[in-house]
């Protein structure tokens, strides 16, 4: 309302009709410093991260220039003979990771379902703590466990698998499993046993993601399934699993990424061998990360460059897998509600 005593509005002050005004936020100096520095830190983190890939990539250039595409096809890793290639270790990395996933994901899913669907309330919080503890235990301790406790028992299992399922190529072993005195050392330090040990690291990660997703299942759908079926498995099958599909896939992919990068457990258990082998029960194998960790100490600068190139390949693979996992989780119905 303008009256005689009301101040006249200046031209600039008069708001334009129908359009929203831009508001100048007069930030104080301390606020501008605050905003600027926190943004700066964020970008710094971004830069450091990017530079990891960049540096590894830069270091790889001489190697690629020298060996060319044969870097990917050569299986030997003998720097002194100028034969370097990651074909064997790449296959080994994937094999160990796959064994870890095949063993670990069903176990993780069962554990997640147990926690969300079957466990009584008091047990539930203990189980969640147990899973978190499992994730906190360092891999060096799982390596000790894997070598000294798991392996002596698992080699019998490996032998049994090659006895009865040896007609499947991956389970074949070069020595005779049916011999009265069987060659025990042929079944140790294998991809199989290493994979089982790596699964210990993979299970808590996948379980946490899946559990978070299963917990989010809408109560209404659960009740509908319960009223129709009366069984817990009916509810799981009809509602929980379809709803949690994004979390299951995403969690498995995250687990895969972890398994691909696992270093110490592999270093401690597997016995290095550089050929493409699909017989997972047999001794011998190698993964990229164990290759780097193992050969690091006595590497010349040229060999170092080769190791870094292998590291770069690992970086690209794990980054790709993890991006894929994050996308799947985010896009799915359950993922929209979850933070991984």
């Amino acid at each position: 309302m303008s009256g005689a005593g009301a101040p006249q509005l200046l031209e600039e002050d008069r708001p334009t009709r129908g359009k929203p005004r831009t508001i100048e936020r007069g930030l104080s100096r301390s606020d501008r410093v605050f905003r600027g520095s926190s943004t700066g830190v964020g970008i710094f983190v971004l830069v450091v991260t990017g530079s990891i890939g960049l540096f590894l990539g830069l270091q790889s250039i001489p190697t690629f220039r020298h060996y060319g595409f044969s870097f990917f096809t050569q299986t030997n890793w003998q720097p002194e003979r100028d034969q370097i290639g990651i074909a064997a270790v790449l296959v080994g990395t994937v094999e160990v990771a796959l064994v870890a996933i095949c063993v670990g994901i069903p176990l993780a899913m069962s554990l997640a379902l147990f926690i969300t669907e079957y466990a009584p309330r008091k047990l539930k919080s203990w189980m969640v703590s147990a899973v978190d503890l499992m994730a906190a235990v360092p891999s060096i301790l799982y390596g000790l466990w894997g070598f000294f406790l798991l392996q002596p028992h698992a080699k019998y299992l490996a032998r049994w698998l090659s006895q009865y399922l040896g007609w499947i190529p991956i389970f074949k072993v070069s020595t005779d499993p049916n011999a009265a005195v069987w060659q025990q050392s042929a079944y140790t330090s294998s991809v199989f046993i290493t994979g089982i040990a790596v699964s210990m690291m993979v299970i808590p990660l996948a379980c946490a993601v899946m559990r978070g997703v299963f917990d989010e299942t809408p109560m209404g759908e659960r009740e509908a399934a319960l009223a129709l079926s009366g069984t817990r498995f009916g509810v799981i099958r009809t509602v929980v699993l379809p709803f949690g599909r994004g979390g299951i896939i995403g969690g498995s992919m995250l687990a895969l990424g972890r398994a691909l990068g696992e270093t110490i457990v592999v270093l401690m258990i597997i016995s290095p061998a550089y050929d493409i082998k699909i017989r997972i029960l047999e001794a011998g194998g190698q993964t990229i990360s164990a290759l780097i960790a193992g050969n690091f100490g006595n590497a010349t600068s040229a060999q170092l460059s080769a190791l870094l190139t292998a590291g770069f390949v690992l970086f690209v693979i794990t980054l790709g897998v993890n991006f894929f996992a994050a996308t799947v989780i985010r896009k799915s119905r359950s993922g929209a509600l979850t933070e991984i």
Binding site: P218, G220, E221, E223, A224, T238, P242, F243
Partner: peptide, 8 residues
């Protein structure tokens, strides 16, 4: 609250 199964 209506609760049909969205996955079906």
């Amino acid at each position: 609250k209506p609760n049909p199964f969205p996955a079906m």
